Simulated assay, not measured.
Amino acid sequence: MLRRSTLLLISGCAALVVGGCSKSTHPAVKELTVAESVAAHKAGAVFVDANTAEFRQSNGKVPGATLLDNYRKYDVKALLPESKDTPLVFYCSNKR
């Protein structure tokens, strides 16, 4: 698993949350396949949902995901795990 310095992202069913739901070229960001995402979830990665409440209501969310009210501005200490070794998977729809 990767450290907090590396963000994991779902591909296939969701788009990247960093940079307004567009692909990132940052070397510490790894795009995951759906199968890799499922494995990360089973291994204890924390999923972070940056979709709007309306999108979640219509389309659902990953069970147990942390929900962000705003993907650009949120309280890291309140919403993300204290341990910096916890793997994180950020996801959002590319529809606004």
Rank of each mutant, 00 (worst) to 15 (best):
L79I: 02
K42T: 01
E54C: 10
A40T: 02
G44E: 00
S11G: 14
S93Y: 07
K23Y: 12
V89E: 03
L7Y: 01
H26F: 08
A65G: 05
D69Q: 10
T25Q: 14
A50G: 14
V48N: 11
Q57L: 09
Q57H: 10
L68H: 07
L32G: 00
Y74F: 15
C13S: 09
V76Q: 14
R4F: 02
I10H: 01
S93T: 15
V76D: 12
R56V: 08
C13D: 03
G44A: 05
S93F: 12
G60F: 06
K23M: 13
L2A: 08
F55V: 08
T52M: 06
L80A: 06
K77A: 13
V18F: 07
E31T: 09
N59S: 10
L68D: 05
S5E: 11
T25D: 13
K95R: 02
Y91F: 12
G19Q: 02
L9R: 04
G12E: 04
T52W: 14
P81K: 10
C13N: 09
L67M: 13
V46L: 03
S93D: 14
M1T: 03
L88T: 09
T33R: 07
T33W: 01
P81V: 06
G44T: 00
G19V: 03
A43F: 02
T66I: 15
V48Q: 04
V76A: 14
G60N: 03
N94G: 12
P87C: 06
V46C: 14
S22M: 11
H26I: 05
Y71G: 00
A28V: 05
V18K: 12
K30R: 13
S11W: 07
L80R: 01
V29G: 06
R96K: 09
A14V: 02
G12Y: 06
V76P: 01
V62A: 03
A14S: 09
A40M: 12
A35L: 13
Q57I: 06
A14R: 04
K95I: 13
C92S: 15
P81N: 11
L8E: 02
K23Q: 14
N94I: 11
L2Y: 04
K84M: 12
L7C: 09
V48L: 09
G19C: 07
K95S: 10
F90C: 07
R72F: 15
K77E: 15
F55Q: 13
T66H: 03
T86F: 04
L32Y: 00
K95P: 00
L88H: 04
M1D: 13
E54D: 15
D85T: 06
S5M: 07
S11Y: 04
